[in-house]
C-alpha cells in the first residue's frame, strides 16, 4: 500500500499532465464551438509544456544561472546544484510556437465569423450544405 501511494506521490506531475492533456483533447473533439476547440488546443499544448518543465526539475537545485564574480576566476561548476536548463530552452520555443498557432487560429476564426456569422460548427455545416 505504501509503495502505491509512494508511486503516486513521486509521479503526480505526470498524472497532472496526462489529465490536462485529456481535458484539452476532449475539448477539441467534443465541443461544437470553434473557439472552445481552439482553447482546448491551447490546453493540450500547455499540458505538454508542463510535462517538459517537470522533466527539468531537480530536487534541491537552483535556477541555472551560474554564480560568478568578476576577477576571481570561478570554481568548478557542479551540475547537481542547478536544474536542467534544456527543457526550459525547449519550452521557450514551444510557448512561442503555441502563441503563433493560437494567433493564426484566432485569425481564421475571425474570418469564419465574418463569413458565416457564427462560430458553432454545426451551424456552419448547415450553411455549407444549403449553399455549396
Amino acid at each position: 500500500m505504501e509503495s502505491i501511494t509512494g508511486l503516486i506521490l513521486a509521479k503526480y506531475n505526470y498524472w497532472m499532465y496526462i489529465s490536462l492533456m485529456m481535458v484539452g483533447l476532449y475539448a477539441m473533439i467534443a465541443k461544437n464551438n470553434l473557439v472552445k476547440k481552439i482553447i482546448g488546443m491551447n490546453i493540450l499544448q500547455t499540458a505538454i509544456i508542463l510535462f517538459y518543465i517537470s522533466i527539468g526539475a531537480k530536487k534541491g537545485a537552483t535556477i541555472p544561472i551560474i554564480m560568478h564574480s568578476e576577477g576571481h576566476g570561478h570554481e568548478a561548476v557542479h551540475a547537481v546544484q542547478y536544474i536542467n536548463p534544456l527543457p526550459h530552452v525547449l519550452m521557450l520555443t514551444a510557448i512561442v510556437v503555441s502563441v503563433a498557432t493560437l494567433g493564426v487560429a484566432l485569425a481564421l476564426a475571425i474570418r469564419l465569423y465574418a463569413r458565416f456569422g457564427t462560430l458553432e460548427e454545426d451551424e456552419i455545416n448547415d450553411q455549407v450544405r444549403e449553399a455549396p
Binding site: 488546443m41 487560429a105 481564421l108 469564419l112
Partner: peptide, 8 residues
C-alpha cells in the same frame, strides 16, 4: 473552414 480544421 478547411484550414481551421487542418490547423486543429
Amino acid at each position: 473552414l478547411a484550414s481551421l480544421r487542418y490547423l486543429l
